[in-house]
Structures are given as C-alpha cells and as structure tokens.
Design a protein around this nucleic acid. Sequence first.
DNA 1: TCCGTATTGAACT
DNA 2: AGTTCAATACGGA
Length: 171
Amino acid sequence: MKRQLVELPISTSDGQFIARYSEKGLAELDFPNANRRRRGNESQISEDEDSSRRLRQIKKWHRATETALKKTLAGSKSKLPPLDAEGTEFQKSVWREMRKIPLGRTKSYGEVAQAIGNPKAVRAVGGACGANPIPVLVPCHRVLAANKKLGGFSGGLDWKRSLLKREGLSL
DNA sequence: TCCGTATTGAACT
DNA sequence: AGTTCAATACGGA
C-alpha cells in the first residue's frame, strides 16, 4: 500500500506543477501536464488535532516549495523545504549527490557514480535520475552524459535544455 | 532470473 | 564523425 500524500498545486508562468507531501516533507513534484495518478488530497485530512497540525505544517512547507520552485525556474538559488523522497538507499545517495551540484554547474553520470563511491554504476545512476520524484528542486537536469551532451530527461529534453539555459549554460 | 536503462569508452568503419 | 559493442550496477517483473 502506497503512503498517503497531500497534494497541492503550484501555479507558475510555466504552468501548474503539483507538489505532494508526506508527514516528513516534500515527497514528489510533477511537471505541468504530467499524467500521474492522484494519490490523495487535502479534503481527506480529518479534523482531529494531529491532522490539522500536520496540515498547517504542510502549508508552511508548501510556501517554501512555491518560492523555491519559482526561483529555480528563474535560474536563481533557493532554500528548500524538508525533502522526503521515497527510494532505495542507492537512489537516495544519487539524489543527495545531485543536490550538491551548484547552480549553473553540471556533472556527468560517471562523475556522480564516482562521487557516491560506486564508480562503475554509471548506468544505474541514469536509472536513479529517471526515478527522481522531485525534478527541478533536486537538480537532475544538471547531470549530463560524459561527452557534455544532454543525455535524457524524464520531463522531456526541452525542459532540461530550458532549465540549464536559465542557469546560464549553453551546450 | 531476465530485461531495460537519462552510460561509457574503445574499436571499428 | 558516426556506429557498434561489451562491461556494468541496479531495480522491476
């Protein structure tokens, strides 16, 4: 059984993103028009004291997510809410490593593999990037192929190109 | 256990 | 400069 997530929209000039929260933080972020199934919504929160406290917490995180997303889309640095992406240890170590890539810089899949102490796991790193549930804020778009070419992107290569360009990079 | 993957680098045209 | 190919770690079925 999947954990229950609270789902909230974020309107930006690039369209409406969808954020989902666990009790520990931001768990997922969808691009506009991503066709992903709904997993929960605000109305399902009951009215006991714990739930309303949790909802207030989530709304606070959501404000942080909104500003972080908008700033990142504008190509500037931002403070993130707590993240609670679900995945294997390997995937989480890849996502952790991607978060260390500074704005406007890139790493190759091989370099990420090396950085997490698993230098031969280059393809697995690609897999973990594709499984990243929080694109943009966990900057999977800053990971390129070794020849400095684009590689792939689950949200569509146009997004990857665009995000890098906003950070001041060309190819 | 088998298959696909957002790879890589070398060895070939 | 393009194509093929083996090696490779991981995750899903």
